[in-house]
C-alpha cells in the first residue's frame, strides 16, 4: 500500500481549526468550516485531532452509493464524485464509518478530501497551513513507523528499556514537561 493520506499527530494538534479554513478557502474559494474536507475533532479538553478521508481499500462509501456517483481512483485512492449523478441521498455518509464524507447543503452533492489534486503546486493546503506542523501527507506504513519510533522513545525515556551502553541521562527538570 503506497497510498498517502492526511495524518494528524494528536500530540501536536491543538484543534485551532486553521486547516478547516485553509481547506474551504482552496476548495470553495471562500471560507466555510462546514464545507471543509478536513475536520477537527476535540474530545474533552485533552484530545484534539484533525482528520480527513483515509482513502481506504474497497471503500464503503463507493459501494453504498445507489447511483454509482462515487468512484475510486485506482492509483491514488482518491474518491471522485460525479456531481451529475449524486443527488445528496446520504447513503455514503451512513457507510463511512469514520464520518469523513460530507454533503454540501446548498449544492446537495457529497464531497470528501481529494488531497488537493487540482492544486498547481501539488501541495495540500491543510498541511501547508498547520502552524503546529501536526499534519502530514503520509502512507499508512510511514505512520506505523512514526508511532513505533515514538513508543520506543517513550519506553526509553521511562527506562522500561535500557539500552547498552545506557543513554546519557537527561536533565530531570526536562522530564517533568514530557507530558506536555
Amino acid at each position: 500500500m503506497t497510498r498517502e493520506f492526511i495524518v494528524s499527530d494528536h500530540t501536536l494538534c491543538t484543534g485551532c481549526g486553521i486547516c478547516e479554513l485553509a481547506c474551504s478557502g482552496f476548495k470553495e474559494k471562500s471560507y466555510n468550516t462546514s464545507k471543509s474536507r478536513i475536520r477537527v475533532v476535540s474530545i474533552g479538553y485533552t484530545l484534539n485531532m484533525a482528520i480527513a478521508c483515509r482513502l481506504c481499500e474497497d471503500p464503503a462509501c463507493v459501494r453504498a452509493c445507489p447511483r454509482h456517483a462515487l468512484t475510486q481512483d485506482e492509483e491514488t485512492g482518491i474518491i471522485d464524485v460525479d456531481e451529475d449523478k449524486c443527488n445528496g441521498c446520504g447513503w455514503c455518509i451512513y457507510a463511512c464509518r469514520d464520518g469523513l464524507i460530507f454533503i454540501d447543503p446548498h449544492k446537495n452533492t457529497c464531497f470528501t478530501c481529494d488531497l488537493c489534486k487540482d492544486a498547481p503546486d501539488g501541495k495540500q493546503r491543510c498541511v501547508e497551513a498547520c502552524p503546529h506542523e501536526a499534519l502530514t501527507k503520509m502512507t499508512a506504513d510511514a505512520l506505523a513507523t512514526r508511532l513505533r519510533t515514538r513508543e520506543i522513545t517513550r519506553l526509553l525515556e521511562e527506562e522500561v528499556i535500557i539500552p547498552t551502553p545506557p543513554l546519557e541521562k537527561k536533565d530531570e527538570r526536562a522530564h517533568s514537561f514530557k507530558k506536555y
Binding site: T14, G15, C16, G17, I18, L21, Y45, T46, L47, N48, P131, H132, K179, Y180
Partner: peptide, 12 residues
C-alpha cells in the same frame, strides 16, 4: 496536560 487554543489562532 495539553494545549488549549482559540479558534483560528496559531499560538495556542
Amino acid at each position: 496536560l495539553a494545549r488549549y487554543t482559540c479558534f483560528n489562532c496559531p499560538m495556542g
